[in-house]
Nucleic acid binder design. Structure first.
Lengths: 109, 109
DNA sequence: TTACTATATTGCAATATTACGATTAATAAA
DNA sequence: TTTATTAATCGTAATATTGCAATATAGTAA
């Protein structure tokens, strides 16, 4: 049916999946890496940088904004984007807890 | 067009996106958590545990196997699944490098 | 052999995602 | 005001994902 049955899972499981989903496209990974590399707001040049059409980039930015991972400040005709540090940190806590599950006691057949 | 333009991105960006994508569904998160919690192979009871139909679970397992994050050992009529520790560890390295980007120097407008 | 059990595969319907041209909205500059 | 610039939104086509019923496959047990 193409519709995820979120009600079958815990809030945390859905939250992990939501964060992971937004990282599940290389354009969004590239956008985030670019924002980190510049250490400041990025005003405008994302379209040139990433190499996809302007509406496509805008759509990817929208998904990152939806999860609050980035902030956009209007500055004249352009919009300046940057990482939302607080949200990034709390997201990282959730994701790392998932990634850091204990491997030591695993005994498989 | 519904087709990700992977050629526009680096191998690492695509790799991060591929790992993230597989974690981007709560059923797969739940399956992995279950495998970790039991600390051993899981033979059979995943369908009951997760609460989706058998073909649906089988499909999710297939995607986890495709990325080598789990191993499946045939044992009679059932198949025993467990985390692939080596792959999990290398995946974690990639993902944590992405998550742990430096937030200190970020100065936004 | 036949019957049973467990998992995989197939086929399909419903929904989601990706990408972009065209348009719109909002501000800046002339 | 007019024109240019920038980003968001709309509309749409192509493809991907999710979920499951039906079926196939493979092993076990009688």
């Amino acid at each position: 049916m193409g519709l995820t049955k979120t009600e079958k899972f815990t809030d945390l499981q859905n939250q992990i999946a939501d964060f992971a989903k937004v990282f599940g496209h290389p354009a969004r990974v590239a956008i985030l890496e670019h924002l980190f590399q510049l250490n400041s707001c990025v005003c405008g040049d994302l379209v040139k940088e990433i190499g996809l059409a302007q509406p496509t980039i805008s759509q990817h930015l929208k998904e990152l904004k939806k999860l609050n991972l980035i902030k956009g400040n209007i500055s004249g005709t352009s919009v300046c984007y940057c990482i939302n540090s607080e949200k990034w940190t709390s997201m990282k806590t959730v994701m790392e807890q998932f990634l850091n599950q204990d491997l030591k006691n695993l005994n498989c057949c």
